[in-house]
Each structure stands twice: as structure tokens, then as C-alpha cells.
Design a protein around this nucleic acid. Structure first.
Length: 433
DNA sequence: GTAGGGTTAG
């Protein structure tokens, strides 16, 4: 029986997971899940590349990238020949996992099967290399493509943005516009789309230059994409990051429709510019007109506004809401809570929130150290700093602690010198070959 | 049947 209808595919996806368990825990599989395993074995045609493609795609779409890659390698072990639809999904799973090794291997396979000039494969590869920090590989691939389309252009632009080079991202966009103006292929208006505009505008947000943002906004108007919600959301952010809060608000007010990202973005604009009252006001509007649907980003941003305003009572109320909605284990949200308590002068509450955190990272330690300082608990600050030091030896918070403790100071010096020593050793070994 | 995007923490 052939697969792809959505319902059986869903069943197969589940049965695939069970199938995997079947080998590791035979007993468990034998009890309750035998039916699905049987289903899988019965309906999944393991000789059919289309079945494998569907499975790999479905798993990748569902965020189960690990299983998606397992499916790909299983398929290869059975010596099933992949086709042009197999690779984009498999490569996408490598990017999602930031797995450069698998990415390179999959790239090699794509070359072996002759898909090096396939645009779907190329754009997935450009995305994969840039997500894995290998932007130069992405660039080489891009330069080798004879006929680029908007997706390959966008992949490269996004790659530069994600690798902290928004300026180069804008240069690539400029190159794109130039190429179109020469009359090569389609015109700008027909080739650019909203995803590309969003990507370019996110680069504008990072370079924070008003003229540049206005220029890109102009392009969006010219090609008729300025009224697309996603574009408006990014444009709003881009203007705010240039310090143009009123322009940002203008975009927001003129939106025909707003989603949760629109509301969150506008709240963030005010919270980040110290305009807490406006941030609360937008949230009020969100509750009234936004269908009352807010998320962890909303709460985290509002906590930031409370931190700025010293609005402890609102902050505590938001903390309650975080607990109710089950966001307490989200590192960003939890860090916002610690920071809010800290800035409201409640070091004890900050510490309680910190102790309750399941997962801690550099930012939460940093917020905790700040709370200790406010509480004038030098000893605890010192202990926290040492913990932070283990996570991130180059963190400025540790350096800023004035290293009262001799040991901390000694470790600091070692950490500063270590990279140089490593470089020296590497050089030495290179020349000794 | 397949590729690319936006908001939140010091």
C-alpha cells in the first residue's frame, strides 16, 4: 500500500517513534504499542523513496529533527536512492540541530546524487552552513549558483544577520537590487517577497540607521509588501531600534490587523526606551482589542517595564501569571523576574526566584550577582561570580566584581592569557609537522 | 512532496 495521505502519515510518524523504542525496550513495545508497530511495518513501504521523503519531511516539520535524520540514515542503510525532495528536508534537520557534521555528510551525498545545482538543495545548504557558523561556505555555495532565486538570496541575507554582520546582509540586498535593475531575469517587484523583506528589515533593525530603514521601507511600498503583517511587525522594530519611536508607533497604529508579535513588539519598543507607562498602556489595549491572548514574551517584556519603573506590585502580579501559565522554567522569563525584583530593591525575592530556577545560564547568574550587590551580600556575589566564571570565563560581570578574592583575580588573569597560549601551542605544532 | 523570515533578558 502506498502512503501519502495525511492521516496515515501521522500514524506512521507515531509508529516510527514506537518502532525505535521497540529495539531498545522490547518489553514496553510488546505490551501496548504492538498494533502501531504492526501498522508501521505493514503500511510503510521501505522500498519506496516517496514514503521515506514523507516521513523525513513530517518529522522535520514537527520539530523532531533528530528522528528525521535517523530516518534519512536508515533509508541510506537500506540503499534507497534519495531524490531531489529528500535532501532539502534532511538538510533542514541538520540546520535545526546546528549539526555541522551531519550537514557536511548530507551535502556530500547531495553531490554524489547530482543535486548540486538544485535550488531547493542549495538554499537549504546555505541556511545550514550559516546556522552552523560557516558563513564562508555559505557564500561560496551562493556564488556558485548560476540562477539564483529569492529564497537563495534570502538565505544568504539571513545568514549574515544571524552571524552578526547586518551590514553585509544589507550589501547583499543592495547587490540583489542592482542585479534586478540590470534587467537580469525578473524585476524586483515580481521576485521579492515578504519573507525577504522581513529578513532585510531585521538587518535594518541591527544597523539602526534611520535613512537605511526608510530606504528599505520605500522598497517595500514600491513592491506592495508594506501592508503585510510580518513586514509591518519587523518595520516597527526597525524604526524603534533607530530611536524613531513615533515612526514605530505610526506603523503600529496603521496596521489593519495585529497578531501577538505586533503587540509584543510595540510593548518592547516602549519598555526598551524607558517608557514603561506606554508599555503598560499598549498591554491594556492588547487585553481589550487583541483577544486577550498573550504569551511568555509579553510577560517577560512587561517585567522589564516594571524593572525600569520600580513597579513591584505589578511585577509580583506578573510573576503570579508566569506561574499560572507555566512559563517559570523558561530561562528568559525567569531571568526577567530576577532582574525585576533586583531593580525593585527586593534582593531576597530575586534570590528565591533564582534558587527556584530549573535551568540557569549566564544571564540568570548575571542578574543574580546584580541582586547580591544591591543586597550588599559580597560573599554570595563572590560565590555566584565563581559559578558564572565556570560558565563563561570572559564574562564582564566577573571582571567588574573588582576581584576582592585573590583566587578569582588569579583565575581572571589565567583566562585572559589562555587563548594566547593556545594559539602559541597551535602555531608550534603546525610548524613542527 | 522539497528551501528562506519577525517580538522577549544585562
Amino acid at each position: 500500500m502506498k502512503i501519502p495521505n495525511p492521516i496515515s502519515l501521522h500514524l506512521l510518524t507515531i509508529s516510527f517513534k514506537i518502532h525505535k523504542n521497540h529495539f531498545s525496550t522490547a518489553a514496553a513495545a510488546a505490551s501496548t504499542n504492538t498494533n502501531l508497530t504492526t501498522l508501521f511495518n505493514k503500511y510503510f513501504d521501505k522500498t519506496d523513496v516517496y514514503s521515506w521523503n514523507s516521513l523525513i519531511a513530517e518529522l522535520a516539520r514537527g520539530g523532531d529533527s533528530c528522528e528525521s535524520l535517523r530516518a534519512f540514515s536508515w533509508m541510506r542503510k537500506l540503499d534507497i536512492k534519495p531524490n531531489r525532495s529528500t535532501f532539502p528536508c534532511a538538510i533542514k534537520s541538520c540546520s535545526a540541530l546546528f549539526d555541522l557534521n551531519s550537514g557536511e555528510q548530507t551535502h556530500q551525498q547531495a553531490l554524489i546524487f547530482g543535486f548540486e545545482s538544485d535550488l531547493f538543495v542549495s538554499s537549504a545548504l546555505i541556511d545550514m552552513y550559516s546556522k552552523c557558523g560557516k558563513l564562508s561556505n555559505a557564500r561560496v555555495l551562493f556564488d556558485e549558483i548560476p540562477q539564483r532565486n529569492i529564497v537563495t538570496w534570502t538565505s544568504l541575507i539571513t545568514g549574515y544577520v544571524k552571524n552578526d554582520d547586518a551590514h553585509e546582509a544589507l550589501m547583499v540586498f543592495k547587490e540583489f537590487l542592482f542585479e534586478k535593475s540590470k534587467g537580469n531575469g525578473e524585476e524586483v517587484g515580481t521576485s521579492v517577497d515578504s519573507v525577504a523583506m522581513v529578513s532585510v528589515l531585521s538587518a535594518c533593525a541591527r544597523v539602526s540607521n534611520k535613512a537605511v530603514s526608510e530606504g528599505v521601507h520605500g522598497v517595500a511600498i514600491k513592491v506592495g509588501l508594506d501592508k503585510v503583517m510580518g513586514v509591518e511587525n519587523t518595520l516597527l522594530d526597525a524604526y524603534a531600534k533607530c530611536g524613531e519611536v513615533s515612526l514605530s508607533r505610526k506603523v503600529f497604529d496603521e496596521m489593519a490587523e495585529k497578531d501577538v508579535v505586533s503587540w509584543n513588539s510595540m510593548i518592547a519598543v516602549y519598555a526598551q526606551n524607558g517608557l514603561s507607562t506606554d508599555a503598560f498602556e499598549v498591554f491594556h489595549g492588547m487585553l481589550k482589542n487583541g483577544g486577550g491572548k498573550y504569551n511568555e514574551v509579553t510577560l517577560s517584556t512587561l517585567l522589564q517595564a516594571c524593572a525600569h519603573e520600580g513597579a513591584l506590585r505589578v511585577g509580583m502580579c506578573l510573576h503570579d501569571q508566569v506561574l499560572k501559565m507555566g512559563y517559570v522554567n523558561n530561562v528568559i522569563v525567569a531571568t526577567s523576574i530576577i532582574d525585576m525584583y533586583c531593580k525593585c530593591g527586593q534582593a531576597e525575592m530575586a534570590r528565591n526566584a533564582f534558587d527556584g530556577m530549573k535551568e540557569k545560564n549566564v544571564r540568570s547568574w548575571t542578574a543574580m550577582i546584580a541582586a547580591c550587590r544591591i543586597h550588599k551580600n559580597v560573599e554570595l556575589a563572590e560565590i555566584s561570580a565563581r559559578e558564572l566564571f565556570k560558565l563563561d570565563p570572559s564574562n564582564y560581570t566577573v571582571w567588574g566584581l573588582e576581584a576582592q578574592n585573590h583566587e578569582t583575580r588569579k583565575q581572571s588573569v589565567t583566562a585572559q592569557r589562555l587563548p594566547l597560549e593556545q594559539e602559541y601551542i597551535m602555531n608550534y605544532l603546525e610548524h613542527d609537522k
